[in-house]
Simulated scan of single mutants.
Amino acid sequence: MRFATLFAIAGLAAAAPTPAGGPSGHDVTIEGIAFAGSGCPAGSVAGQLSSDLTTVTLLYDSFVAQAGKNIPASQYRKNCQLNIKLKYPSGWQFSVFKADYRGYAQVPAGDTGTCKATYYFSGDSKQISSTTLIKGPFDDNYIKTDQFGVESTVWSPCGVEGLLNINSEVRLSPPDATKPALLTVRSSFPSFPMFHHCISS
């Protein structure tokens, strides 16, 4: 079973509070992407960059957390660490504006599913996280939306190309549940282009 993840940059700048005269979505391109984690181990992800290098689609085989009778405790949590190298105009800083995560959850009464994503740039200790709890009983698709303002988000360093890191995870509690439980990530859609001018120190 494959789950699709779509990261898009092109055409999304209008949704973010970019200053007048700032870069457009087409001024930002994805230069490369790497991934690792129990939810996206080597060989379990298929990806494709668009011809204009502004969109990457990832298909997951393994981003599924499970709990229940005869299911090892190691399966109750899955994560995926994405490292996305981005190119954007000099003199600007860049950040995540919004991200949507879609998946399926089967959580029995008394149990809880947790969906969490943490965003940060390499070389910067500041992080921003968003967590959604799915309390049982629940048996349906879900949507998790992360939306960040200018004051609350993290920004790429000035003067260098930004390496954006997104660590997403799904987990079930309690991990030793006896009733079947399932929590997946099928797709995510971060909107990247939020910019402001670099400020010289």
Rank of each mutant, 00 (worst) to 15 (best):
Q48M: 04
R186D: 12
A46V: 09
G149W: 03
T178F: 04
S188C: 15
P108L: 13
Q147I: 14
G103R: 09
S130C: 09
A20T: 01
D100Y: 11
A15I: 14
G149N: 03
N141W: 06
T153E: 04
Q66N: 09
H196Q: 09
L183M: 02
S24A: 06
S122N: 09
G47D: 03
G91W: 00
R2T: 10
R102D: 05
Y88A: 01
A67E: 08
L163N: 00
G110M: 00
I30V: 04
K179H: 11
P89A: 00
G136T: 03
S200W: 02
S90T: 11
N165E: 06
T114D: 01
R2Y: 15
D52G: 07
F192M: 08
L6A: 15
I199L: 06
F63V: 06
L53R: 03
P23K: 01
Q106F: 10
W155F: 14
I33G: 08
S38A: 00
L133V: 13
G43Y: 00
G110V: 00
E161A: 12
C158A: 15
C115V: 06
S122E: 10
G149A: 02
E169K: 00
P19F: 03
T55A: 10
A36C: 09
E151D: 10
D100T: 12
T145Q: 04
P193N: 01
S95K: 11
G136F: 00
I166Q: 13
G21W: 13
D146K: 08
A73P: 07
Y104T: 13
G22Y: 14
F189N: 15
F189K: 15
Q81Y: 11
R2A: 14
L53H: 02
S125Q: 05
P108C: 14
K98L: 15
I134R: 08
A181P: 03
A67D: 07
K179N: 11
P72Y: 13
S129N: 07
D100F: 12
A46T: 10
W155L: 15
I143L: 11
L49V: 01
R102P: 04
A8W: 02
S24L: 08
L164Y: 04
V28F: 02
T184K: 01
I143Y: 09
T29N: 07
F3G: 12
F94P: 15
G162T: 07
P41A: 13
C40V: 11
R186Q: 14
V170G: 00
I199K: 08
N167D: 14
L58A: 08
A42Y: 12
T54Q: 12
V107E: 02
I71M: 09
Y119V: 14
N83C: 07
G113E: 03
T55P: 10
T114Q: 00
Q106N: 10
G47Y: 05
A99N: 13
R77Y: 11
S90E: 10
C158R: 12
C198D: 02
T57Q: 06
P41M: 12
R102E: 07
K135V: 12
H26L: 15
G47T: 05
A67G: 09
P89T: 01
A14C: 14
G149P: 03
A16Q: 03
A36P: 09
G25C: 07
K126S: 14
V107T: 03
I143V: 11
L164M: 05
L163F: 01
M194D: 04
T55L: 10
V154M: 09
M194E: 05
A65H: 04
T153L: 08
T29Y: 05
Q48C: 05
A105N: 08
L82V: 08
T153D: 05
